[in-house]
């Protein structure tokens, strides 16, 4: 349940930022989940729900929306852009799980489909981040 640690980070960050901005009410929070990390959304939601029940203050589940960000990789050697989902078929379950824990490990297992280089950039869809927090003061 590694998703729990990330869910905890999201909840704590939203509450901290809302406190910093003196928000009386949190209206909407958008959380982006990068495809590369292959977060299990059910597990992530379950974790957030549990954490919020233990003390979510002004934040509740219905205010949080999750969106998966498609993962695009760009080769630094030949400039090729490709989707991580296209590389998935070449990965074993173990490789894929390792990337789930530490997304940068993709450089160990994924190669540019054109030139075979491990030197690529993760241009989108890496991890979990908060896109925005909307609230009322």
């Amino acid at each position: 349940m590694h998703e729990w640690a990330l869910a905890e980070a999201v909840v704590e960050t939203v509450l901290k930022e809302a406190g910093k901005e003196n928000l009386k009410e949190i209206v909407r929070v958008k959380v982006m989940v990068g495809e590369l990390q292959q977060i299990e959304l059910d597990v992530f939601n379950f974790a957030m729900e549990n954490i919020l029940q233990q003390g979510g203050g002004a934040l509740s589940m219905e205010k949080i929306s999750l969106e998966v960000d498609k993962c695009v990789l760009r080769c630094k050697v030949c400039g090729e852009d490709w989707y991580y989902s296209d590389s998935l078929q070449d990965l074993s379950e173990e490789d894929s799980e390792a990337i789930h824990f530490v997304p940068e490990v993709a450089h160990v297992y994924v190669r540019c489909p054109r030139c075979g280089s491990p030197d690529f950039e993760i241009t989108s869809g890496r991890g979990v981040w908060i896109d925005y927090i909307e609230g009322e003061k």
Binding site: A98, I99, F101, V102, P103, E104, V105, H107, V108, Y109, P118, D119, I122, R126, G127
Partner: peptide
């Protein structure tokens, strides 16, 4: 635990992220 015995060719910003 995640790389096994494979090399991990990471650039600076990726090392930071990891």
């Amino acid at each position: 635990y995640y790389t096994g015995n494979n090399p991990s060719p990471l650039r600076g910003s990726e090392i930071s992220n990891a």
